[in-house]
Write a protein that binds this DNA or RNA. Sequence first.
DNA 1: TTGACTATGATAGTAATACTATCTTATATT
DNA 2: AATATAAGATAGTATTACTATCATAGTCAA
Lengths: 228, 228
Amino acid sequence: MEVYVNPRVNDQVYLKNPMEFDLGKKIISNTVHMMHDIGFEQFTFKKLGKEIGSTEASIYRYFPNKQRLLVYLSAWYWEFLHYLIKLKTKEIEDPKKKLKVAIKTLVYAPSESNNNCFLEMQKLQDIVIEQFYKIIRTKRVTIQNESGYFESFKRLCSTLAGIFKEIDPNFNYPMTMATAVIEMSINNHFCSSNLPTLTEIKCGKDQKQQIEQMMTYFCERLFKKCDC
Amino acid sequence: MEVYVNPRVNDQVYLKNPMEFDLGKKIISNTVHMMHDIGFEQFTFKKLGKEIGSTEASIYRYFPNKQRLLVYLSAWYWEFLHYLIKLKTKEIEDPKKKLKVAIKTLVYAPSESNNNCFLEMQKLQDIVIEQFYKIIRTKRVTIQNESGYFESFKRLCSTLAGIFKEIDPNFNYPMTMATAVIEMSINNHFCSSNLPTLTEIKCGKDQKQQIEQMMTYFCERLFKKCDC
DNA sequence: TTGACTATGATAGTAATACTATCTTATATT
DNA sequence: AATATAAGATAGTATTACTATCATAGTCAA
């Protein structure tokens, strides 16, 4: 399946749509590289301006601050995953198979998408893993939520929750489970590389397979019917 | 059970042990109030100095920056929970009962501990819920981990993982499960108040009971034996 | 071709932040 | 009495996170 994915981001997230201008595109693609290299805290509009041969002032015309730029990138990331999961599960009837495909997509899609997407998804994933909680767990989250900053993430969670509900209509906490599954995938990526005592996943080349297996293991145990 | 809990924090976290000095105590207890009110970003040593009738320079003698002060507070928080869970499960034989007590402690202890602890645990919990990922998901986490900044958190996870392993010795991912359970309790506290679409927990006076019930539901489904 | 509009660049300036350094004073200890 | 330590007072610096203004180049419409 070869598709070029170009996620649309809610227009309340930016001041001027970066995807409609050359400078805008430069801003977002170079932000992915730079934030990946130096981290969110060290990243500034001044440094980015220098890197892309532009100025601080010009970047401020697209995003009011670096937090919002990060919100934009996260929205892109979740929208990308959501789009792919929707696409890949569309034709599947069996919800258990849907779930397997969704898990596979969550785990493998970013590293396999360097040619079918404007941004480098693997780097973007690393950024989102490290930084997403910085933008979601804040005092301002309620206001931001009302502004639709997290729509893409919420839609992805709803889609997953829908699959859980299909598998077991009596399951009480599909939304909680959806956020937990996403969190689990993110957290184990991070911990296996950085805090190995906190996970059973070992860092290495089959890391993603281990994570897929683990997520499947949890889902199967949670949804197994006592039909022996 | 009435105990005064006074967690000890790894001495690599601070420059000078705040608990040994009046000013130090003032610093940590007032940080809890101030950070709770204005959030981590807005919080500065200058503002705190003014609040407690001291100066920026004096606070820098205890902590090299506000991140480390947050590390200190988080360590205290996790150490506090870990201590209580150890204490309350010590005499219990049945691991399933142990788990129930551990979950109860995670959910209820902070709000019930305003008289048996130097810090205001409910406020501290709100801070940890909002900010813990800021200190754990960073580029520097590996170095910090080696410095023992997260020992308390890791010990708590190990204790929980031990209980899971007792319940089901064949369970493959006790550590992952432990971090997921803690995360679940934190995340649902946060979401029910701030991002209600992402959880089934409703904000209100029985919020904690709902969370306890939900965590129990997940654990029971994961560990139910097919013994019908 | 003129005029208007827009995207960007260039430059300057400001308030706040995150420190660092030094000097003084008060108090406790030996 | 001498010493050590805690902490207050003050000053200073580099960087950050903006805001404001003005100039310029290209595009499109009358």
